[in-house]
Design a protein around this nucleic acid. Structure first.
Lengths: 332, 332
DNA sequence: CAAGATTTTGCAACAGGTTGCAAAAATCAC
DNA sequence: GTGATTTTTGCAACCTGTTGCAAAATCTTG
């Protein structure tokens, strides 16, 4: 049913090769034959079959986009950015939702069957060696939003989470908070421990040390229960640095439910700066990840990796910035 | 580099055909050869190349997942459900973000190049004939979340938006609201007009007719500006039926900003029941779309369409339900 | 155990392209 | 215009699997 190379060749009165070359950038075809072929192709409505050509070229333009953060609204923004950036680069995202099983090797074999050109791991909770599996299999890979301070074996694009933690500490201290807490995301996530590390280090410079709590997930509910627990066990803490905006929102609601007013009775600072933190009824002060840049840098890295598989893995670390809203008291 | 059929065949001392048949369900292979082949395949770590086999079988297990709602948090829930359901069915979502250009034929040719087995259009704003393009090209397609009352040419799974509008009207009337408004999504969306139609019809039974406003998008900002305008032009309206939860949240904030307390001074009812409507600081009363069912029915339809391309397009219409929270006054 | 029926197997063609190579055509230099 | 270059072209092999077909092997049955 669909039009093939051969059909076009016959129609244009040339060989298959000529047609193939017409559609291969940089191949040798004379202007005349190219014209004939293009005319025939247009008449017939021909579209080369990417899959067939991938057999010989080894290229599919398919990129695995793996994430396990399908419940954090921030990631819708991330997916929006990624799909657009990939489309722009003429790459097609093959989406994998890892919420269920987090087995890298299963994803790997699936993506290998489809001959993906590269893989983007968009997750703050997947372990750093998750991406390594792809790298070891010879597939260009970049882990976005998940940089941590341990050995960099694969491409990474992220903020420096240690620095983010430090920025949170600096901010809280500036505002005169002395008794502060860290309400992190899942305890085993590499990003969480980096953030905690930076937060702690900066505090200790000022002779302070934080109360510590972990939410079990990057979600409203997890943030809410963690904060309820925290308010109970450490009621005197004046301000909390939350591991993520959505956790912070859960925390806000937990605090409100216990009659604490924000920011008068309790300060909160989040991380990410997802859109809805700017909504009136949220107004969360937060540390902004440069999502747009992280995404475009990731796609750039993948493109380079695809263009030249010998490219060594690269790390890109981008700066984050404070976004002031209304969950911290102003300078004392 | 990767292991091929031939490698396994040589290793196992059989022909390529034998290996191929071992991996083809229902093919004729003796237990002995199957065992030999499986052993060899395991040793070598062989994985059949889906793309190569798609050449002859015509099947890729790829499903185009098209949406243009990458800014509405509700759709993250939808993507989560779809990716899981597809994975469960051994289908792979090839994601297309149509936020930029909404040209069906471009998506079509892209997806044709990849030989997708089917297409799911997950959108409430794309026109009903968007999906038709795929259907006409002989690709099984289902339009989820976008059913409207016009002629059904393709598979559709959705709530009955007319009924949803009616349910909103019934609810508002029950609560004693007499002066009500419709704050719809984009005016040209088929779902919007159905909702308006049902809303209006039910009101007219009671001798009422609604104030009408449209937001320019399904987004917080659009809802906020539309409501600001609405409060200005129709300050006496007591309750609004919003086209969507995120619009409703924007509307809540606009009302709050103008000093209207909810639900005392103004009632609001949304549609979708996305997770965050249940957050304390939102607490939106809304009409729930059975997202889980819509998704699983969509995937079922696609599977049927793939299994037997002669299957006629089917429509599935699922019921919605009211979820009471705190943006409507209680019965008078 | 032979004849017939059934199952298993390998060959070779095929799916829709790409590409190295040598022949053919066009271009250039003189 | 001729020979040397350069460019364009088609042939045929190849990419990785699948499948119709006929031959080979195995199983039935009397």
């Amino acid at each position: 049913m669909p039009i093939t190379l051969q059909d076009v060749a016959t129609r244009a009165g040339v060989s298959k090769s000529a047609v193939s070359r017409t559609f291969t950038p940089g191949a040798s075809v004379s202007a005349k034959t190219r014209a004939k072929v293009e005319a025939a192709a247009k008449e017939l409505g021909y579209m080369p079959n990417v899959l067939a050509s991938s057999l010989t070229t080894g290229r599919t333009a398919l990129v695995g986009l793996i994430s396990n953060n399908f419940t954090n609204p921030y990631f819708l923004e991330i997916f929006d950015l990624f799909t657009r950036a990939l489309q722009e680069a003429d790459l097609r995202p093959l989406l994998i939702n890892l919420s269920a099983e987090e087995d890298a090797s299963r994803s790997l074999s699936m993506l290998q069957q489809y001959n993906v050109d590269g893989v983007i791991v968009a997750s703050s909770t997947l372990p750093p060696d998750f991406a390594k599996v792809f790298h070891d299999a010879g597939i260009p890979v970049v882990h976005a939003f998940g940089w941590s301070s341990d050995t960099p074996q694969t491409g990474r694009v992220s903020i420096d989470n240690t620095e983010a933690g430090q920025m949170a500490a600096v901010t809280l201290i500036e505002r005169g908070y002395r008794s502060v807490g860290f309400l992190g995301g899942p305890q085993n996530a590499a990003t969480t421990s980096d953030r905690l590390h930076g937060f702690r280090a900066e505090l200790s410079v000022h002779g302070l040390s934080p109360e510590i709590q972990f939410a079990t997930a990057y979600s409203y509910d997890a943030g809410r229960v963690a904060m309820a627990r925290a308010l109970d066990s450490a009621p005197s803490v004046e301000a909390w640095f939350c591991g993520d905006d959505v956790i912070a929102i859960g925390a806000m609601d937990a605090a409100a439910a216990m009659g604490r007013r924000i920011p008068d009775d309790l300060g909160l600072i989040g991380l990410n700066d997802m859109q809805m933190t700017g909504w009136d009824r949220i107004g969360l002060t937060t540390i902004r990840q440069p999502a747009q840049h992280i995404v475009s840098a990731s796609v750039d890295l993948i493109r380079k990796g695809i263009a030249d598989p010998a490219t060594p893995p690269q790390n890109v670390i981008l700066p984050c910035t404070l976004v002031e809203r209304s969950t911290l008291r102003t300078k004392p």
